[in-house]
Design a protein around this nucleic acid. Structure first.
Lengths: 212, 212
DNA sequence: CCCGACGGTGAGCAAGCGCTTAGAGCCTGA
DNA sequence: TCAGGCTCTAAGCGCTTGCTCACCGTCGGG
């Protein structure tokens, strides 16, 4: 990946992903699976389809992954880690709660728009995970929720936010951002950056203390 | 259904649904399908599962529906009609744009929470529809989008709203409401009414002109 | 009193599914 | 040079899937 690509990619909401997946064949299969799952859904995707997209035979899949479900779990786990990283980075950032909430929403939305293929799988295929894997992932999601709630609480304490219902608003903010993965379309008019900016503005309006 | 049930149901966001589906066996199958699709998703649901929930043999399904996909289409069509009705009613209502937007969000969210089983199928199983059926349904969704956009425009004209990006905000508002179907849980702390009220408040904050 | 229509069942077909296995090709190190 | 270990494939197994078909009970009208 060139330096220019890296810059463009970071602007789109994430660095080159899937680097952590090795060897290359395993990564190619995983990327093929992300595309297929995002297009048709986990259950409508066949192992033959995944292997075909990766230019390999169906049996090749089982050298790198025990089951089709393990593939989904790897995708879901990496994606949730990334999403949580984004929120944590915004929480740890400098500035007022207002700045940090705007930053969190902006970068979180940018990722869901720019990587909407991945995000769609990560956010909407939880039910297909095994019991064990699902509870693991749900733990990560609770952490995301906690980060947003904490930013809101700190904003309220600082007198910057007026939020009567912090847990409810945290759910709404996260829900708003996550659902970008469902409707966002690369062929649409907006770039991930633009959607991120729009959403950051909308969320700030939702929580900011009214000047009367 | 008793009068008390009807009142409780209307409060939950919709009158007794599926009345339009006859005969009774067809309705029982359809209700069973809604439950199964909402729980596991369309592709993970078998015709044997649907028939089993309805207390019938697998073959019975094909007396009332040509294919499994036709069942999904009937559900999706009826659900989208209902959702559009709710928005239209709010649009046609009395009061200022502020009142009507609050009403739209409140009742739309109440439906997505109270009937989240149905709503989940309606909102998240579009991809499983056939090409023809999907384009039909997408038309209905565009109408919903147009209604919200029109309320926003009228509010801006009336000077009640300050919305720099009307189409983008309309998408965000609808997205926020729709995603309730994904996370809402009957065993959670909030009633559909409470979520509706919270969301109506949040949306009004998103669009209302700031008093400075 | 019988008859056709209707709504239902039990059994099962063809196709496609996730996954396995036997073995081929190829790289690596002694 | 070649043995041992990886990676990958061709073939296919056992099972489930959406859907069909021959047949059956029930019931209102002539």
């Amino acid at each position: 990946m060139s330096a220019a690509d890296e810059t463009a990619d970071r602007a789109a909401g994430g660095e080159q992903p899937w680097d952590e997946v090795t060897p290359e064949a395993a990564r190619k299969l995983l990327i093929a699976a992300v595309e297929a799952f995002a297009e048709r859904g986990y259950h409508a995707t066949t192992t033959r389809d995944i292997a075909g997209r990766a230019g390999m035979s169906p049996a090749a899949l089982y050298i790198h992954y025990k089951t089709k479900e393990e593939l989904l779990h790897r995708i879901s786990r990496i994606g949730h880690d990334k999403a949580l990283d984004i929120l944590d980075a915004a929480y740890a950032g400098a500035g007022t709660p207002t700045d940090r909430l705007a930053d969190a929403v902006r970068s979180f939305v940018r990722w869901h728009a720019g990587r909407h293929t991945t995000a769609r799988v990560v956010q909407y295929e939880l039910e297909a995970l095994s019991e064990t894997h699902r509870t693991e992932i749900i733990g990560l999601r609770r952490q995301s929720d906690a980060v947003v709630r904490r930013i809101l609480e700190e904003g309220v304490e600082a007198g910057e936010f007026d939020v009567p219902d912090v847990p409810g608003t945290a759910v709404a903010v996260l829900s708003l951002c996550i659902d970008v993965a469902r409707w966002f379309n690369t062929r649409g008019r907006r770039t991930p950056d633009e959607v991120g900016a729009l959403y950051a503005d909308l969320v700030l309006r939702m929580v900011s203390a009214q000047k009367k």
